[in-house]
Amino acid sequence: DESNKPILLPNESQSFERSVQLLDQIPSYDTHKIAVLYVGEGQSNSELAILSNEHGSYRYTEFLTGLGRLIELKDCQPDKVYLGGLDVCGEDGQFTYCWHDDIMQAVFHIATLMPTKDVDKHRCDKKRHLGNDFVSIVYNDSGEDFKLGTIKGQFNFVHVIVTPLDYECNLVSLQCRKDMEGLVDTSVAKIVSDRNLPFVARQMALHANMASQVHHSRSNPTDIYPSKWIARLRHIKRLRQRICEEAAYSNPSLPLVHPPSHSKAPAQTPAEPTPGYEVGQRKRLISSVEDFTE
């Protein structure tokens, strides 16, 4: 099969070098950035008060330690540790928490760990991170309901609301924008112990962030949302095809390698009803078989 044979790379090609550099910018793992907010007593309706908090309760602090690993920003190499735009020179604080497994990295933009500057009256330095995160974990210690939209931002799609209760338990629920209701189930609340709260809140936030990324990708319907490693695979396959075309153009005697095509017509299947918005969006999480067989 010609399409699977190794090909020689061009010795000097600026377009090839640019493509390789672009490939280096696509990590081999999925990345997520999640905002974390603490809401104190009497702050449920005040964005400024929430963003001005420099610490929270003892249970909130224990919750943070379970979310991930504490890292010092100045020691991080952005090409190895995903920071979601946090500055490593102290502009966004000294520490944050991050978490990773074999296929993804997540960083938490924690408002109480970011510096509260006197010259920044409206807390814009914090909002440029927190307001651009799709998902926020809100530790609501106010005793009042927290409403979506209290923290203004164009991309605040989903809130994971943590409400501490007695007996070391917590109520965990989801809020989302109306255009996200087909992807996020907000109907079920959970009672979770303090011990298990970081794991549950983190998983709910990661799932909500993946759904938000799919939702946000609708602005470019021709580019369905893939995982990062599938995006790398697609980029490599496009690069291979372009090299083959350039080689055939410079030397017409060489065969032009095309991806294999299936001449056999697909079997006719009964027509199915058109899937609704929710089903269609969830299918976009699934990769096409052509990603692996071309």
Rank of each mutant, 00 (worst) to 15 (best):
D1C: 10
E2Q: 07
E2T: 08
E2W: 09
N4W: 10
K5H: 13
P6A: 13
I7Q: 06
I7T: 08
I7P: 07
R18N: 13
S19Q: 15
V20C: 11
Q21M: 11
L22R: 14
L23A: 08
Q25T: 08
P27V: 05
S28K: 07
S28N: 13
T31M: 08
T31L: 11
H32Q: 03
V36G: 00
V39G: 00
G40D: 04
G40S: 03
E41T: 07
S44Q: 12
S46K: 05
S46H: 06
L48V: 12
A49Q: 08
I50V: 05
I50Q: 02
H55M: 11
H55A: 08
G56M: 02
S57I: 01
E62R: 10
F63P: 00
L64P: 00
G66Q: 03
L67S: 00
E72D: 09
D75L: 07
Q77Y: 09
P78S: 10
D79K: 06
D79Y: 03
D79I: 02
D79A: 06
L83T: 09
L86E: 14
L86I: 11
L86H: 14
D87C: 05
V88N: 11
C89T: 14
G90L: 05
G93H: 12
I103K: 02
M104D: 15
A106P: 02
H109K: 04
A111P: 05
T112R: 02
L113G: 03
M114S: 05
P115L: 02
T116F: 07
K117L: 13
K117M: 09
K121D: 14
R123C: 15
K126F: 05
K126N: 04
L130E: 05
D133A: 11
V135P: 00
I137M: 01
F146N: 01
G149W: 03
Q154C: 14
N156I: 08
N156A: 06
H159T: 11
V160R: 01
I161T: 04
T163I: 03
D166C: 03
D166I: 01
N170F: 02
L171D: 02
V172F: 00
L174C: 09
Q175W: 04
Q175K: 08
C176N: 01
R177M: 13
M180T: 02
G182S: 11
L183A: 05
V184L: 10
V188K: 06
V188N: 09
A189D: 12
K190T: 12
V192P: 00
V192I: 13
V192Y: 03
S193Y: 01
R195T: 10
N196A: 07
L197P: 00
P198C: 02
P198H: 01
A201W: 01
R202L: 03
R202F: 04
M204S: 04
N209G: 13
A211L: 07
A211P: 01
V214F: 09
H215T: 06
P221T: 10
T222G: 06
T222V: 07
D223C: 07
D223Q: 07
P226W: 02
S227L: 13
K228N: 03
K228P: 05
K228E: 11
A231C: 10
R232G: 13
R232N: 11
R240Y: 12
R242M: 15
C244D: 14
A247N: 12
A248C: 10
S250H: 11
N251C: 13
S253W: 07
P255D: 12
P255M: 07
L256Q: 15
H258G: 14
H258K: 13
H262V: 14
A267K: 07
Q268A: 11
A271V: 06
P273N: 10
T274D: 11
P275L: 10
V279K: 14
R282Q: 12
L285V: 14
I286G: 13
E294M: 08
